[in-house]
């Protein structure tokens, strides 16, 4: 069953005269229980997409069109009161900079309490504390963290705190925005395996925003590759990473070392992101693409189906059904 369906999502940042298309006609859907990795280099619109879905962008400086249907309700148009209800109870987030994701001058327990009471106003202190300590145990945190201030914790502990906070109401969708990026590889590995273990005990659909392909490879079922705000490829991780159909995905895969298999030279993708306030005509990746033809430079390719799920926005993908 589809839990979240993004349709034709566009996000444009307005900065004075400039209009920057940060997310450009992105569509995809995920099922309940899925784990989706959203990858792309910095500035590709990964976080913007999540922020837009949650309506966290300042409407004075952004223009959002399209739809983000969560179980039949469009998050982009649902009325603010309903949105407040959905926030955290249904959709929770773990942010990248967990160092700053809590107030530095209030105790962690106090902040958990206030957040819990947003949705359960009558909850007693004791009840909340029991719930939070259970969550702390799940993410390997000592109960005493409840009485500490954020600065008294290490980066890894703070990240665990953020994860515990996100699980406060057993959300249906958990968005992890570069949640492990700032951590050392050992802690990152620990946290990833804890998340996978958690997922076995609680039903949650996870969206993982990252620029680290290895994180996606080890912890997600499906993957979206974004480039300059546009969807390049979408499909099962095993299909997309093993057999990338888009030249950009191919480039990304080749720029990561493989632990097993033969040693290959790592290749980077030459060039950098185009100016999004003045994007090139045709395929957005064409200026950096080794296979680009005149057709690519003149016309933008629509995402094309390779099979039921696997989609790539490239003229090189032949056959299949054309899809908007």
């Amino acid at each position: 069953m589809k839990i979240l369906e993004i349709q034709d999502l566009c996000v444009t940042y307005i900065a004075g005269e400039k209009r920057i298309k940060a997310v450009d006609h992105v569509s995809f859907a995920i099922d309940e229980g899925d784990s989706l990795g959203i990858v792309g280099e910095s500035g590709s619109g990964k976080s913007t997409m999540a922020m837009a879905m949650l309506r966290l962008l300042d409407p004075r400086y952004t223009e959002i069109t399209g739809a983000a249907n969560y179980r039949g309700e469009n998050l982009l148009t649902v009325d603010p009161r309903r949105l407040s209800e959905l926030r955290w109870k249904d959709i929770a987030v773990v942010f990248q900079k967990s160092m700053n994701s809590l107030s530095p001058v209030h105790r962690i327990g106090e902040q958990f309490e206030d957040i819990y009471r947003v949705h359960e106003p009558k909850a007693s202190k004791k009840e909340i504390r029991e719930r939070v300590e259970k969550l702390f145990a799940m993410v390997n945190l000592a109960p005493r963290v409840y009485n500490l201030y954020p600065h008294e914790l290490s980066g890894g502990m703070l990240q665990r705190t953020s994860i515990a906070l996100s699980l406060l109401f057993h959300p249906k969708i958990l968005i992890m925005d570069e949640a492990t990026t700032a951590l050392d590889v050992v802690t990152q590995g620990q946290i990833l395996s804890e998340i996978k273990k958690l997922e076995k005990s609680i039903a949650v659909t996870r969206m993982m925003i990252t620029h680290d392909l290895s994180v996606v490879a080890t912890s997600c079922q499906k993957i979206i590759v974004l480039y300059a705000g546009q969807l390049m490829e979408f499909g099962y991780v095993r299909d997309v990473l093993a057999n990338p159909r888009h030249p950009y995905t191919e480039g990304l895969v080749r720029s990561f070392p493989s632990l097993h298999g033969k040693k290959e030279e790592l290749l980077s993708i030459p060039g950098s992101l185009p100016d999004l306030s003045n994007p090139p005509q045709g395929c957005i990746f064409a200026p950096r693409c080794p296979y680009a033809t005149d057709q690519c430079r003149a016309h933008r390719p629509e995402p094309r189906h390779i099979d039921d799920l696997h989609v790539a926005a490239c003229w090189r993908v032949k056959g299949g059904i054309q899809d908007a």
Binding site: L56, S84, L86, V93, F95, D114, V118
Partner: peptide
């Protein structure tokens, strides 16, 4: 503009609180 304000917003906490 701090991150934690975004955190509280996304939990559904009222702007006033």
């Amino acid at each position: 503009a701090e991150e934690f304000v975004t955190t509280f917003r996304v939990t559904g906490m009222s702007e006033r609180k």
